[in-house]
Every structure is written in C-alpha cells, then in structure tokens.
Nucleic acid binder design. Structure first.
Length: 302
DNA sequence: TCACGTCAAGCAGAT
DNA sequence: ATCTGCTTGACGTGA
C-alpha cells in the first residue's frame, strides 16, 4: 500500500500551480510560471520520498491554459528534458502518480464545445504523464459528468464518447464514483461496458451509497483493475466534524482512519487522502500504519 | 503594506 | 436569479 495526497504540499513554501491569469498572458510569463511549477514539483517529490510518501496527485494547473486556444507555445518540447528528469526520479523511487482534471472536464456533455474542451484537457493530462515516461499504472481520473435530466442517456453518452478517445488517453483513464450523481453501481456498469478501472472514493460512497458495504465495494472495484493498471486506487476522507454533509475533513480523524484500515486489512490498494491539510495527515497516517503492529501487513516501502 | 475584487471553463442543488 | 461546492486561494490594483 502506498499513501498519498493531492497537488499541494503545505510544509514547503512553494506551489506547483502558481496563479496565471488569461489577461496577463505572455510567453515569457508562461515559461517563467512553468519553470516555477516544475521546480516546486521536484521539491514536493523529494519531500515525499524522504518521508516515505510514494503516491501523489500532480496538479492540473502545472501547465496553465494548457488546453486553452491561447496556448500556441510548444511547452512539451521546451520542457521535455525537465519532464524526463522528473519522470526518471519518480520511476527510480517507485512512486505512483495520478492526475484529476477539474470540474470542467465533462465528456458526456450535451454541448459540443464542452466536449471538445474536455477532450483537449484529457490530452493535456496524458501529455504530462507521457512526458514523464510513466506507464499505465499512472492514472487520470474524472467523474462520469452531468445528468441532464436523464441518467441512463447520460451514461450511454459517456460510454460512446469514451470509446472515441485516443488510446494514449484510455491507457491512463479511470473513473470515480461521485457524491451526488453517479454512485458505485452506476460506475461499475460503465466499467463493465468499457473496461475502465474504477477508483472507489470511500467518502463519496458514504455520501451517495448504492447499498454495498466497504468490503463489498472494494471487492467489486478491485476486479476492474487489470495487471497493467497497477494496484486499485481508493480515495479516502472522513466527514467534516462541523460542516458535515459530504464536506471533506480538514484533518485526519484517527479513529475513523484506524477503523477503516482494520475493516479493509484483507485487501491491498493504494490510498489517496483527500484531506484539506494534505501531507500533514498523510504523514500521520503513515505513522499510524507503521507504528501499529496490528497493521504490519502494510509495507510502506517496497 | 494591506484590503479587496476578481479569476477560463460546467453542473447540480440550495437559497 | 444567484450562490456554493467541487480538488483549491493567490494575484493585481489602488488606497
């Protein structure tokens, strides 16, 4: 099991997603920002490795406006060697990488422009993973998308659009159950018809439950991962103690987490902690796992 | 130096 | 109709 966190490291005073506004666009600023972002990404990866964190989600803002019409600059070529160095470090350290395009990536949209933009965005994410030289265990995850008043038709639209994506996107593509629209059963149905592996979001499953227990859910999603996809990935959070109603917690709830680990000790998977304080909770989770003999099945380091 | 308005984009649900 | 949340605050302007 590898444990990780998304996008931002709060212990380092750098961001791999520096703000970049459209009206301030210039090629110089773009190059400057990407240099900053890649530099920070390197710092984060080194921090992670030194702290036994071998799972990380790279920010979609790494290359600003990558899928926007304003982007004419060949960043892939310009930063090719930088990406290769980072990729070599990732592979040498046996780290696992994922990416998660934002809420604007909706391939089952009824609007042609939205679909085109979504495909461009997926291509950009695949570019990043390919420039890093990562194999198909590095994943790009989205949700199914909108409902548009007819869930079955919207599911069918997702499936048709998926089939037409480039292989280089499909190699990395996975989908995830969400907290409102598409629950576990519905993503499993899509997986059956397309072969897409499923990321089980434990917390979304709690909010938008299709009836399965955690164990049943893990067994079902695990079958959707083939050897070349790597270990199944789960996303984990607990409920915010005050805000409640499907809001992610600010910090790890130790009791909830140890209960979860206890309940799932039969299974092996990689775990992404979607908790607001990022690496701080991740470090604590790793400490809990390594210090507690009940959990000695876990091998943090390969 | 600091307060404050604003930032590419979609969708659903609450107010 | 407008606001909020999503994975998430930081930049630019003007006082």
């Amino acid at each position: 099991m590898k444990i990780g966190y998304p996008c931002i490291n709060l212990s380092l005073n750098c961001r791999s997603s520096r703000t970049f506004r459209l009206k301030n666009y210039s090629e110089n600023r773009l190059i400057d920002t990407i240099e900053n972002n890649l530099d920070c990404l390197e710092k984060i990866l080194k921090f992670n490795y030194e702290n036994d964190i071998l799972f990380f989600r790279i920010s979609s803002d790494l290359i600003p406006f990558a899928s926007h019409p304003i982007m004419q600059f060949n960043w892939q070529k310009h930063f090719n060697s930088g990406f290769k160095e980072l990729g070599d470090y990732i592979k040498k350290s046996h780290m696992r990488i994922t990416m998660h395009p934002g809420q604007y990536t909706v391939i089952n949209s009824t609007n042609l422009t939205v679909i085109e933009n979504s495909i461009k965005e997926l291509k950009y994410h695949a570019d990043v993973l390919n420039l890093l030289g990562l194999d198909s265990s590095a994943k790009i995850t989205t949700h199914i998308g909108g409902v548009y008043g007819n869930k079955q038709e919207s599911l069918n639209r997702f499936i048709e659009r998926y089939k037409n994506l480039d292989e280089r996107i499909k190699n990395h593509y996975v989908i995830e159950n969400d907290d409102k629209n598409y629950n576990l059963n519905q993503v499993l149905k899509v997986s059956k018809l397309t072969g897409i592996p499923i990321i089980l979001d434990i917390y979304h499953h709690f909010c938008n439950n299709s009836g399965a227990s955690i164990q049943e859910a893990i067994e079902k999603v695990s079958k959707t991962w083939k050897r070349e996809d790597g270990l199944p990935i789960l996303h984990y959070s607990s409920e915010h103690p005050i805000k409640g109603k499907c809001r992610h917690a600010d910090e790890i709830d130790i009791k909830h987490f140890t209960d979860f680990i206890e309940k799932t000790k039969k299974y092996d998977f990689d775990l992404m902690l979607e908790i607001k304080n990022k690496e701080k909770s991740t470090l604590l989770a790793i400490k809990i796992l390594t210090n507690d003999i009940r959990f000695n099945r876990i091998k943090i380091l390969e």
